[in-house]
Design a protein around this nucleic acid. Structure first.
Lengths: 341, 341
DNA sequence: CTGAAAGCGCTTACAG
DNA sequence: CTGAAAGCGCTTACAG
């Protein structure tokens, strides 16, 4: 049948089916205006020759890349990994390839510009936790491909995010309701004092809840944990070492909370008894560890981001913000206040 | 300067530099036999026009895809995620795109065939924990692209793996040295009784060590944990519920060990005191949890796999097996035997 | 509903 | 060291 070497081309299929290559192209991509009988003949011929269209040729000819780019400051955190998994799920099903790029947070400019790696290669871009703020978003809106931003609420481009201020307030209210009045915070560096980014918003919400309850938050009870396990461990040690330590701590990520719990174990203190700890995320292992936390629907954030980008690619939707829900999950790491042993 | 719409093409650069497109192509890809002065002129012209070669056109013309495929039965485990991160690191630096595919383990045939999605799209394939065995490897060797298999030692294709039998023996020896004589196992289903796969090898190594020490391993002390956290939790409950429970347990993955520790917490038992638990992996949070475990260099496994595939793509290396080291990490979850409270 | 033909933007023998 | 030209394998007006 097919005497040529290498995989079958569209010409082989055209010959086999006795039609033109144009007809093969149309029949196989379910274009209208192809006679049913013809379409069937082409499909059979293609199947017989195990024909698969060469994507590079198709993309070159059509101008579409069938690829979307995803950019995130850090790819190795649990959070980003889950978001990417959600995004990948949706795009794989839709027949898009995903091109993933990193750039350290300081290279924000480059990320906003869409990174060289993506030029001419993607039909759309997904930005995860880049924190462009409205000025950046306005610039993103001028790119020649649609952009969806995950992690903050924006006007100029489509965005998907949780309300970090409200989430931190949930954590605070939970501790306040248990009766805590001496509460510390393990956070991370903000990009800028006034910027609305994740650590800033969570600090703002937490502080506001304490103010509402008339509970002070002294500066020395706010420690930087760098959003890592080890950082959380060191921060908790620093908190406990103080002359008048808090009875409860809000860690702005579950990974920092894991480190905080590790510190308690090292000190022979029991979480939820000698010290309450509430995290933020609901990491895969938080349930097993018994960590009380503010749950983010991380997979769903990724899936939603992918869906809305898909809709924008198909010209179906306009710019909008998509809020995602947060819920407090109570587990063993929090309890009523208790003095140190 | 450039009056055309859209991004600059190779023709624009040729015109700007006053040379042919062939020369532009050669100059920009650092081919030999281009005069230094010419190369520089072309590079400047390209920079001025912000020219980036259209990868689809380049790939179509050259026949190279500059893409490698990665196939794994499950993409969501911590282990696979880390391997993929390692692989991605190396290929991103080498200028390759990574195309990731899944297929549930039962679709092994399809995976061995390289999956339709990859046909004509990749220059090479990386198989993660597919467990093809030698028969499968022989078939893989006949594909028209080089293949590297991660997770088992093979003859017919290049492979990268740890020695699971030896690793399980490390776990057993550690518990035996502590004085344990009543030891249970939390494992997972094997593909086939006689196959050399991960759970089978770990069972084999563990059992062999116990036999050498004259310690029995009754069937009811071997529980299936399905390689999930929840499965590990249920398995530990089943073990403790027995009339004569073991004093120590080997969980074949850290995630199952996390579930096992969760069960102990639910039962008010202290790990390393009332029950010793040793895992396998050294998951990111195992240190924080204090889990004794057999550490796999998971990132390095991914990076090594990517490197050897790269070498094969460049025709630099021949088929070989690359063993990776395993080390026991002692933490708080194991201790001397102790009766239940 | 179908075909002939141009064109997508590169790379690569071939010739000089 | 450089250029003219063919070709990679598709898609898509255009014409019928």
């Amino acid at each position: 049948m097919n005497e040529s070497t290498g995989p079958a081309t569209i010409d082989d299929v055209a010959r086999e089916a006795g039609v033109s290559t144009a007809t093969v192209s149309r029949a196989l991509r379910n274009h209208p205006y192809v006679a049913d009988a013809t379409r069937q003949r082409v499909q059979e011929a293609a199947a017989r020759l195990r024909y698969v269209a060469n994507p590079n040729a198709a993309r070159l000819a059509s101008g579409a890349t069938s690829t979307v780019g995803l950019l995130a400051p850090v790819l190795t955190s649990w959070y980003t990994g889950e978001v990417v998994a959600g995004v990948e799920e949706v795009f794989a099903e839709a027949g898009y390839d995903l091109l993933i790029g990193t750039a350290d947070p300081s290279a924000r400019e480059r990320m906003l510009a869409g990174e060289t790696r993506f030029r001419q290669r993607v039909d759309g871009v997904l930005l995860v936790d880049v924190m462009c703020r409205e000025e950046g978003a306005v610039r993103l809106a001028t790119l020649d491909v649609p952009v969806v931003v995950l992690g903050e609420e924006l006007q100029a481009v489509t965005s998907v995010s949780v309300d970090n201020i409200a989430g931190a307030r949930m954590a605070a209210d939970h501790l306040l309701q248990l009766g805590h009045r001496h509460i510390g915070v393990i956070g991370g560096k903000s990009y800028a004092e006034q910027a609305r980014d994740v650590p800033n918003d969570r600090t703002t919400g937490f502080r506001a809840a304490l103010v509402d309850a008339g509970v002070p938050l002294p500066d020395h009870w706010v420690q930087d944990g760098g959003f890592t396990i080890e950082g959380g461990r060191l921060a908790m040690h620093a908190l406990v070492r103080q002359p008048n330590p808090p009875t409860a701590v809000f860690a702005m990520s579950d990974e920092m909370a894991f480190g905080a719990l590790q510190a308690l174990r090292e000190l022979g203190l029991t979480p939820g008894v000698h010290m309450s700890v509430v995290g933020f995320d609901d990491h895969t292992v938080s349930e097993a560890i018994g960590l009380t936390t503010v749950r983010q629907p991380v997979r769903a954030i990724g899936r939603t981001g992918a869906h809305v980008l898909l809709e924008r690619l198909e010209g179906l939707s306009t710019i909008a913000h998509h809020p995602m829900p947060l819920t407090l999950v109570e587990r063993a790491s929090t309890g009523v206040p208790h003095s140190m042993p």
